[in-house]
């Protein structure tokens, strides 16, 4: 079986994650969509690493994981700070920022 199927699976997961980011109003759920997109990119990297028989793709996936962990820490801290300021984590609320 061709490992390219895993790349197609990664594309499907990526589009589901992007739909979640666009559709959901809960900041945490939208953030989980971002995580799913990062993971699908990882899956594509690992699949390509397998296709080419080299390790560089896996190294890149490892770096993506590290950066994603750092990003989650900061993002969740921002969500908590926003929740403390306005008692809500809806993504529609900060629309008050406009003009």
């Amino acid at each position: 079986m061709n490992p390219m199927n895993y790349v197609i699976l990664a594309a499907i997961l990526f589009s589901i994650g992007s739909a979640a980011v666009l559709l959901r109003r809960n900041a945490i759920v939208a953030f989980m969509g971002v995580e799913l997109m990062l993971n699908s990119a990882n899956l594509a990297l690992v699949a390509f690493s397998r296709i080419h028989g080299e390790l560089n793709g896996q190294i890149m996936a490892f770096f993506v994981m590290v950066v994603a962990a750092a990003e989650v820490v900061v993002g969740l801290a921002i969500i908590i700070a926003v929740f403390r300021a306005r008692q809500s984590i809806s993504l529609d609320e900060p629309a008050e920022l406009k003009g």
């Binding site: 699976l9 997961l13 589901i16 994650g17 739909a19 559709l23 959901r24 989980m32 799913l36």
Partner: peptide, 12 residues
């Protein structure tokens, strides 16, 4: 594929 796609559909 089945596990990941059905699991991630719960996001929507």
């Amino acid at each position: 594929a089945i596990i990941t796609v059905t699991g991630s559909l719960s996001l929507l």
